[in-house]
Measured scan of single mutants.
Amino acid sequence: TTITITINGEELRIRGDHEEIHKILKAWEEDHNDEEIVRLIRELAER
């Protein structure tokens, strides 16, 4: 699965399995701050 998210003008492409993507979207849905979401995404992007 690949998704693209733009946060603060920075486009981040994430490839991951369903569970990893779900974790990010769940954090977003629960209204975590952008920095935390960006950190989760970067961790995935670095793999």
Rank of each mutant, 00 (worst) to 15 (best):
T1V: 14
T1D: 07
T1S: 09
T1H: 14
T1M: 14
T1G: 07
T1R: 10
T1E: 12
T1Y: 15
T1Q: 11
T1N: 08
T1I: 14
T1L: 14
T2Y: 15
T2G: 04
T2E: 13
T2P: 04
T2I: 12
I3G: 02
I3K: 04
I3P: 01
I3A: 06
I3C: 11
I3M: 11
I3N: 01
I3E: 01
I3D: 01
I3H: 06
I3W: 08
I3S: 02
I3F: 10
T4S: 08
T4N: 04
T4Y: 14
T4P: 01
T4R: 09
T4A: 06
T4W: 13
T4K: 10
T4F: 13
T4C: 09
T4G: 02
I5C: 03
I5E: 00
I5R: 00
I5N: 00
I5V: 07
I5L: 12
I5G: 00
I5K: 00
I5W: 01
I5A: 01
I5Q: 00
T6P: 02
T6D: 04
T6I: 14
T6R: 13
T6F: 15
T6K: 11
T6E: 05
T6N: 11
T6M: 13
T6H: 09
T6A: 05
T6Y: 15
T6V: 13
T6G: 02
I7A: 01
I7K: 01
I7G: 00
I7F: 08
I7L: 07
I7M: 06
I7V: 08
I7Q: 01
I7S: 01
I7C: 07
I7D: 00
I7Y: 04
I7N: 01
N8A: 08
N8E: 06
N8F: 06
N8R: 12
N8I: 02
N8Q: 09
N8G: 10
N8M: 09
N8Y: 04
N8D: 09
G9K: 03
G9R: 03
G9V: 02
G9F: 04
G9I: 02
G9P: 00
G9W: 04
G9E: 02
G9A: 03
E10A: 13
E10R: 15
E10S: 11
E10T: 15
E10W: 14
E10M: 13
E10N: 12
E10C: 15
E10V: 15
E10Q: 15
E11I: 15
E11R: 15
E11M: 15
E11F: 15
E11Y: 15
L12M: 07
L12S: 01
L12H: 05
L12D: 00
L12W: 15
L12F: 15
L12Q: 02
L12E: 00
L12Y: 15
L12C: 03
R13M: 11
R13G: 02
R13A: 04
R13T: 10
R13K: 11
R13E: 05
R13V: 11
R13C: 03
R13D: 03
I14P: 00
I14K: 00
I14S: 00
R15Y: 11
R15N: 06
R15T: 08
R15G: 03
R15P: 04
R15L: 07
R15C: 04
R15V: 10
G16K: 03
G16F: 05
G16M: 05
G16L: 07
G16P: 02
G16N: 04
G16A: 09
G16C: 06
D17R: 08
D17F: 13
D17L: 08
D17V: 07
D17A: 09
D17Q: 09
D17N: 11
D17W: 10
D17Y: 11
H18G: 06
H18A: 12
H18Y: 15
H18F: 12
H18K: 10
H18I: 12
H18V: 11
H18T: 11
H18M: 11
E19Q: 09
E19K: 11
E19V: 11
E19W: 12
E19D: 12
E19S: 10
E19Y: 12
E20G: 05
E20S: 11
E20L: 11
E20A: 08
E20C: 03
E20K: 05
E20H: 06
I21P: 00
I21W: 05
I21L: 11
I21T: 03
I21Y: 03
I21K: 01
I21V: 09
I21H: 01
I21G: 01
I21N: 01
I21R: 01
H22K: 10
H22I: 07
H22G: 06
H22D: 08
H22C: 12
H22W: 15
H22N: 10
H22T: 12
H22E: 08
H22M: 14
H22F: 15
K23H: 06
K23Q: 09
K23Y: 07
K23L: 08
K23C: 02
K23E: 05
K23N: 07
K23S: 06
K23V: 05
K23P: 03
K23T: 07
I24N: 01
I24S: 01
I24A: 03
I24M: 08
I24W: 06
I24E: 00
I24Q: 02
I24R: 02
I24L: 14
I24F: 05
I24K: 02
L25S: 02
L25H: 02
L25D: 00
L25C: 04
L25E: 01
L25T: 02
L25G: 01
L25K: 04
L25F: 12
K26R: 12
K26H: 06
K26E: 04
K26W: 09
K26S: 08
K26V: 05
K26C: 04
A27S: 07
A27L: 15
A27E: 04
A27D: 03
A27G: 05
A27R: 15
A27W: 11
A27M: 15
A27H: 07
A27N: 04
W28A: 02
W28R: 02
W28P: 00
W28G: 01
W28F: 07
W28C: 03
W28K: 02
W28S: 01
W28Q: 02
W28I: 07
W28M: 07
E29S: 14
E29A: 10
E29H: 12
E29C: 13
E29D: 08
E30Q: 12
E30L: 15
E30C: 04
E30W: 13
E30P: 07
E30S: 13
D31W: 10
D31R: 14
D31L: 10
D31E: 07
D31I: 05
D31C: 08
D31H: 12
D31S: 10
D31P: 04
D31G: 13
D31T: 07
H32M: 13
H32D: 07
H32A: 11
H32E: 11
H32F: 09
H32G: 08
H32L: 08
H32V: 09
H32K: 14
H32W: 08
N33A: 09
N33P: 05
N33M: 14
N33V: 14
N33I: 13
N33Y: 14
N33G: 10
D34L: 13
D34E: 09
D34K: 11
D34S: 11
D34N: 14
D34F: 14
D34V: 13
D34A: 13
D34R: 09
E35F: 07
E35D: 08
E35V: 12
E35M: 12
E35C: 09
E35N: 08
E35I: 11
E35H: 07
E35R: 06
E35K: 07
E36I: 08
E36D: 10
E36S: 08
E36T: 09
E36V: 10
E36G: 07
E36N: 12
I37A: 05
I37C: 03
I37P: 00
I37W: 05
I37F: 12
I37E: 00
I37L: 14
I37N: 03
I37Y: 05
I37S: 02
I37G: 01
I37M: 08
V38S: 05
V38F: 14
V38E: 06
V38K: 10
V38T: 07
V38A: 05
V38D: 03
V38I: 13
V38C: 06
V38H: 07
V38Y: 15
V38M: 15
V38L: 15
V38Q: 11
R39L: 07
R39P: 01
R39C: 03
R39G: 04
R39T: 05
R39W: 04
R39E: 04
R39Y: 04
R39N: 05
L40Y: 04
L40H: 03
L40W: 05
L40V: 06
L40F: 04
L40C: 04
L40P: 00
L40Q: 06
L40T: 04
L40E: 02
I41N: 00
I41A: 03
I41K: 00
I41P: 00
I41G: 00
I41W: 03
I41H: 01
I41F: 04
I41Q: 00
I41S: 01
I41R: 00
I41T: 01
I41D: 00
I41V: 05
R42M: 08
R42D: 02
R42I: 09
R42P: 00
R42L: 11
R42H: 04
R42S: 03
R42C: 07
E43I: 12
E43K: 13
E43P: 01
E43M: 15
E43H: 10
E43W: 15
E43G: 05
E43A: 09
L44K: 02
L44R: 03
L44Q: 02
L44T: 02
L44H: 03
L44S: 02
L44W: 14
L44V: 03
L44G: 01
L44D: 01
L44I: 06
L44C: 02
L44A: 04
L44M: 10
A45T: 05
A45L: 13
A45K: 04
A45C: 09
A45H: 05
A45E: 06
A45N: 08
A45M: 09
E46G: 06
E46A: 14
E46T: 10
E46N: 09
E46C: 14
E46I: 14
R47W: 09
R47L: 14
R47V: 11
R47C: 10
R47Q: 14
R47S: 13
R47M: 14
R47E: 09
R47K: 13
R47D: 06
